[in-house]
């Protein structure tokens, strides 16, 4: 790991200033993705701007049929939040299935979505629930937020401040974890929402994606059997030592059916 300068701003404005003044600046949230990458010298920032002291990024609010979660809220806080449990229990469970207790205590919602790890769980929640990412300068719909492998719509110095989740009629998340890392080999969020049925898949491919065929089948009848015979193509999916593309494609179907069954 290379030496770096640490900054501890107490507002988003200060954070932006620190970032802009740095040679190669990086935001530091829970550090659960960034620090491992730095240890391998795959990222060599000269300056780290910690988000830990910015109150505006904290807190969970329920308002007007939405749950708004600050970017610096940890996975453990989402898991334990009575607001989340009451409005979107699937989201609380998803957070509670991320990594292990240490990771959940440090890792944050904002860090996870900004990092856009293809095997991360939150992307399925954002896309599956039709959430909105709130940044220091704009709002971005989840469907256009995740643009590729570790890629998002965020620009260079943009800071995620919160994610706003509409409360679904019902939703469930089924995860098939990698037995070694506990990241998702396949994770499927299924939700019946005001915007229709949404099925979002993480882990299987380079970026979270929706399965239109499943969504329309479920719109016709929100039952597990509705998904019978719907096959996801393995063509665009990951295949590696952890799981082949065919196995991942198969698991998408199994996890989707289980998520639907759990909604009942």
């Amino acid at each position: 790991m290379q030496p770096f300068q640490i900054h501890r701003p107490s507002s988003v404005a200060e954070a932006l200033a620190a970032l802009r003044g740095a040679g190669e600046g990086k935001l530091l949230a829970g550090g659960q993705s960034l620090i491992p990458v730095m240890k391998l010298d795959l990222a060599e920032p000269t300056d780290l701007v910690s988000l830990a002291g910015i109150d505006a990024l904290r807190g969970i609010r329920s308002e007007g049929g939405r749950v708004v979660i600050g970017a610096a809220v940890s996975h453990a806080e989402v898991e334990a939040s009575p607001d989340v449990a009451a409005a979107i229990p699937a989201l609380a469970r998803l957070a509670g299935a991320i990594g292990d207790a240490q990771v959940r205590n440090r890792g944050t919602l904002g860090g996870s979505v900004a990092h856009a790890d293809p095997a991360a769980d939150y992307p399925a929640a954002l896309v599956g629930l039709g959430a909105t990412v709130v940044t220091d300068r704009r709002e971005i719909g989840a469907d256009s937020f995740f643009t590729g492998l570790f890629e998002t719509a965020l620009v260079e110095d943009e800071i995620v401040t919160a994610v706003s989740f509409p409360v679904p009629e019902r939703a469930a998340y089924a995860k098939f974890p990698n037995p070694a890392s506990k990241f998702a080999i396949v994770g499927v969020m299924v939700a019946a929402t005001g915007q229709g049925v949404r099925v979002a898949v993480t882990g299987a491919g380079p970026s979270v994606f929706r399965v239109a065929e499943m969504e329309s089948a479920l719109a016709d009848g929100f039952r597990p059997e509705a998904l019978d015979g719907i096959a996801v193509s393995s063509d665009e999916l990951f295949g590696d030592g952890d799981a082949s593309a065919e196995y991942r494609a198969h698991l998408v179907g199994v996890m989707a059916r289980r998520a639907v069954a759990e909604c009942a």
Partner: peptide, 16 residues
């Protein structure tokens, strides 16, 4: 895979 193979192929291959 072993289960799929035993079934004389099955959904694994079909999906692939």
């Amino acid at each position: 895979r072993a289960i799929c193979d035993a079934k004389g192929d099955a959904k694994g291959r079909a999906v692939a």
